[in-house]
């Protein structure tokens, strides 16, 4: 028997059929969330990171049935009215995207960080990205993009 689980994906409640031994990663991709990348499948690379009840986690390490009833946010939910999320735009502006495979996971880690630490130091950004591997860029531009997003959002709050 295939269990059905309730997931709120990017704010929309869905009833999702799953296999008992499946990971959240597999279910999300089947539901069309292709920003959630299947990288290492062993919790090392961070390409499958999603926000689970607001916290960034590797979706390859979470059993789908155990996520029943939870909120999942992916990069598909970031864009609004045709405008990129400020951090997406900052990644583009900083040239932080090369092959792009790690980018969604990095956005997820960055957004989690700024949600509880709106004014991080460079070291704090690096620690937050500790679980996201990028083989193209060397991380400098992603760190710059997240710091730029923090500055931008602080400016908006001050204004």
């Amino acid at each position: 028997m295939k269990p059905t689980i309730a997931l709120t994906i990017n704010g929309i409640q869905r009833s999702v059929e799953t296999e008992l031994g499946e990971t959240l990663l597999e279910v999300l991709r089947r539901e069309g969330m292709k920003s959630v990348k299947l990288g290492c499948d062993t919790g090392d690379c961070g390409a499958c990171a999603v926000l689970l009840d607001g916290s960034a986690v590797n979706s390859c390490m979470v059993l789908a049935v155990a996520a029943d009833g939870k909120d999942v946010d992916t990069v598909e939910g970031l864009e609004h009215d045709g405008h990129l999320h400020p951090m997406q735009q900052a990644m583009v502006d900083a040239g932080a995207v090369q092959c792009g495979f790690c980018t969604p996971g990095i956005l997820v880690s960055g957004i989690d960080l700024l949600s509880h630490n709106p004014d991080p130091t460079e070291d704090e950004v690096k620690e937050a990205l500790g679980g996201n591997l990028c083989r193209c860029t060397g991380y400098v531009k992603q760190v710059d993009a997240i710091l730029a997003t923090a500055r931008l959002q602080a400016g908006e709050t001050d204004a």
Binding site: G43, S55, S109, G130, N132
Partner: peptide, 8 residues
């Protein structure tokens, strides 16, 4: 590990 592991 990393925050992605420690968060869960």
């Amino acid at each position: 590990g990393s925050p992605l592991l420690r968060n869960v």
